[in-house]
Amino acid sequence: MMTFNHSCIIDDDPISVFGMKRSMKKVNFSKTIEVYHNGQEAIDGITAMVAAGQKIPSVIFLDLNMPIMDGWEFLENFTKIPNTNTDYVTIFIVSSSVNPRDIIRAKEYSIVNNYILKPIQPKDLLKVLSEIKAQ
């Protein structure tokens, strides 16, 4: 079983984050899991990592509805972080929205790999792992 070094959760709902982390641990998804509570925090954090020369998370689970900076804004801003090798990063949108508009919009971003409906379950994570492995 392959395991990622760094992964990251961007979600403002603490229960949702708790569930995600628990599922990830269960499938041994990655060595470290970084948690940000909104887009702005995540951008700031990742920018700091890049500046410090650290490796940024290779898998990001992104919620859409968040205060201050929502998921969409994060997507716009993430690609603008200087010196980021975005090819190396895979983003999964994790949302409870079943609005088709959101699902279609998510597909417009090449950096977004898939759209996962909440609650996220271990089998979803296993699927993600196998997909990335195939690539």
Binding site: D13, I15, S16, G19, N65, S95, S96, S97, V98, N99, R101, L117, K118, P119, Q121
Partner: peptide, 16 residues
């Protein structure tokens, strides 16, 4: 959609 989203986020949390 907002209603659906909000209700779903809570219900999915609960079921999880």
């Amino acid at each position: 959609h907002i209603v659906s989203h909000n209700l779903r986020s809570h219900s999915s949390n609960l079921s999880m």
